[in-house]
């Protein structure tokens, strides 16, 4: 009941409190306006390209060769989608199993050690993953099926990158299952696996979905790891061993020298990426809000 300060009575007539309120209010406005600014600037910068080229050319031009005035983003959009879907298809189940391991099956000591390890992994910079992929994974794939830098390498590295986050999020949604449910299950004489399958997992379901969506958002937006292992050839891949280029890699590679419409077109691709991520984040928030029931 007495949780926070309220406004029901005219504010305290004290100078310091007014000053404080002003200061806090300015801080919060800045924090809240960052998102507005990001969206505003992305749109402002992409307007020239949209005006000169139109939306259609981003989908139907022969290819992406800004030097030759062709701006088809589709290969990159598909590259982003393929690597993301591949990565989440790998990291989702593995992350879920890892969460189950840590939450239920590992002995307590090992579980806490393992948990810390995963937490540590979640902080490893993407550039380190990319570097390791470049010097270890890509040569291995090259031996198996040349050329090496490929969609497969991208999927594997991306999956590794989002695994710790996925596992942590899944763990926290498992941990949120109320202990009364577990006691109830125990009272019914359910064994460990039956409790998991019939009580814990259904109760944690919406949390697990949120975890998957957030991990997908992370994979969509990841730049460095895919930039370093995917080969960055603009093409629609015919097999997983083909090199590809993602939206993010494209921006990172070309922003340095892009001018005029080319630069503006890169901002258009930024807007596309932002839209995809926003849809996912909104979906994640929404699925998190759905009440849990078994």
């Amino acid at each position: 009941m007495f949780k926070t300060w309220s406004s029901s009575i005219p504010s305290f007539p004290y100078h310091r409190d007014q000053l404080l309120r002003w200061a806090l209010w300015s801080c919060a406005s800045i924090a809240g306006l960052i998102l507005v600014f990001i969206i505003l600037f992305l749109i402002l910068e992409s307007v020239p390209a949209l005006r000169h080229l139109g939306v259609n050319r981003f989908m139907f031009d022969p290819s992406w060769h800004p030097g030759e005035n062709t701006f088809n983003l589709m290969p990159m959009i598909l590259g982003t989608l393929f690597t993301t879907i591949g990565a989440i298809a790998l990291a989702g189940p593995i992350g879920f199993c890892s969460a189950l391991f840590c939450h239920c099956y590992a002995p307590p000591r090992l579980a806490s050690l393992y948990g810390r390890f995963i937490e540590l992994l979640a902080g490893i910079p993407s550039v380190v993953f990319g570097f390791w992929g470049l010097v270890v994974l890509v040569p291995l794939i090259n031996q198996w099926h040349p050329p090496g830098p490929s969609m497969l390498a991208g999927i594997l590295i991306l999956a590794m990158m989002i695994l710790p986050t996925t596992s942590l999020l899944a763990q926290s949604s498992l941990a949120q299952v109320p202990t009364e449910y577990l006691r109830g299950a125990a009272a019914l004489g359910l064994g460990r696996w039956a409790t998991l399958r019939r009580v814990v997992i259904p109760a944690a379901k919406s949390g697990l979905w949120t975890a998957a969506l957030l991990a997908t958002g992370r994979a969509l937006g990841e730049t460095m790891a895919v930039l370093m292992v995917c080969g960055n050839v603009v093409q629609i891949p015919s097999s997983i061993f083909d090199p590809i280029r993602t939206l993010t890699a494209n921006m990172a590679l070309e922003m340095a020298y892009a001018v005029d419409d080319h630069r503006s077109a890169l901002f258009v691709s930024g807007v596309v990426l932002l839209l995809m991520v926003l849809i996912l984040v909104t979906a994640a928030n929404w699925s998190n809000r759905v009440p849990r029931h078994v």
């Binding site: 009941m1 007495f2 949780k3 926070t4 300060w5 309220s6 029901s8 009575i9 005219p10 305290f12 007539p13 004290y14």
Partner: peptide, 27 residues
């Protein structure tokens, strides 16, 4: 005052002070 959505009406007199008046120095 600290409770959200709490409304108080009527009067409280403490010595010469009107407790519920907005001008009262609450501190």
């Amino acid at each position: 005052d600290l409770v959200p959505h709490c409304q108080v009406s009527g009067s409280i007199q403490f010595g010469k002070i009107d407790v519920l008046s907005p001008d009262t120095n609450v501190l």
